[in-house]
Write a protein that binds this DNA or RNA. Structure first.
Lengths: 215, 215
DNA sequence: AGCTAAAATGAATAGTGATTCACGATTCAT
DNA sequence: ATGAATCGTGAATCACTATTCATTTTAGCT
């Protein structure tokens, strides 16, 4: 069986290489070079081979998006399910997301905002929806605890995610060096602002960065 | 000269018909049926004729976008330049925008959020930028007047526009009947929430709809 | 080695849609 | 009326890519 196992391993490894190549390509230049031929070349296989592993281009990218987004959603979910006041967790969740998005900016932009063909777009929406779900869940908690003002959690979640996504990777968002002080300040400010929408009282927690002076 | 004038009028009228056809097509089904051939048919001319009046498809749509957005930007700008406290004007500006966007939802979505080819997208960004500019301008005033917390106006403008755009016409935004009570409440809540990000104190103006009960 | 099935190949196919252009129709100044 | 200029036409062309498939290569088996 070890021979058969080796064979299967090689197959799955090729599959992985294709997925990885697709992810890299998008992370590098966005959907512009997301053509099947390009991915195949990058993975070191012929174009036809891609279709041995994936039914269609859309299928391939649906899987890539799923893979990439799962991690991000998990990070946010972990914060949402953590301890402490909802207000604090909301800021932290956004902040965590923001920090991560500011590395792989190109990928984050492609995932969140860049125009692409409708078929792939459908897969992208699942990611956005999942993200908004986490936020909505947290908002519900915050309302129940009396920390947040009483609004429709879904609507509020849209506003909050819209706010930080636009500021982070929106087409107008400024390019910042991932590790610069400016980027860190921006991440904190974005998190603080987006969360403030829901705060019952302006005064934030003890050592929260909200509302600091202009950088 | 009246004959020459008539000729020119006919020419510009054809041009207008093409522009109008393009706008209608996008308003109806989004970028899906924004093909040159389709527009031409809708305007009652041959495809080639379109190219007598516009250098390229991108040019045509750049003009369409400019025409449509100018109106919206003017509406917002008027509110921004109005009287009263900045906080109130911010809510009003967003509210005005929201009401208008909720009619022509399909067009608003196409303008603000729908994926489309990169060339047209470039033109779309101008609209977003112009909108963010108005908001940023207002935020600057609000900060100067001490009404808003002190943050980078550009960053805050991104957050605010992102918040209401996502909630209004984002791909996850709920479909509502344009004139229903639900839509009106949503518009008010969105405006209230988005603006709250910047408020120094939670308590809104005298008869502001902010923070009302869940609809 | 010879055989077979799975796997890989990449040239050919096909669909889409923007753009061009050679030609006929119209208009208008003379 | 005439012909040069302008306008309108729509079939043909071009560019781009996803997808297919006949063929070749590889790997395991006897």
């Amino acid at each position: 069986m070890t021979v058969a196992a080796a064979r299967i391993e090689k197959l799955t490894e090729t599959r992985q290489r294709i997925l990885e190549a697709a992810r890299e390509a998008v992370a590098l230049n966005g959907w512009r070079n997301a053509q099947v031929a390009h991915i195949a070349a990058r993975a070191g296989v012929a174009t036809g081979t891609v279709y041995r592993y994936f039914n269609s281009k859309a299928d391939l990218y649906a899987e890539v998006l799923g893979l990439v987004s799962r991690r991000e959603i998990e990070v946010v979910a972990a914060v949402v399910d953590g301890d402490g006041p909802a207000a604090r967790r909301l800021v932290d969740a956004i902040h965590a997301f923001a920090r991560r998005a500011m590395r792989g900016r190109r990928l984050a932009y492609a995932l969140l905002a860049e125009p692409c063909e409708p078929e792939i777009d459908a897969a992208r929406l699942k990611y956005r929806a999942a993200l908004a779900d986490q936020v909505a869940r947290l908002i519900e908690q915050g309302i129940a605890d009396g920390e947040f003002i009483e609004v429709d959690p879904r609507l509020a979640a849209s506003c909050v995610t819209g706010a930080f996504m636009e500021a982070l990777v929106g087409p107008l968002a400024p390019e910042t060096e991932p590790h610069s002080r400016a980027a860190q300040t921006a991440a904190r400010n974005i998190a603080g602002l987006a969360a403030r929408m829901l705060f019952r009282q302006t005064a934030p927690g003890p050592d929260s960065p909200i509302g600091g002076p202009i950088p």
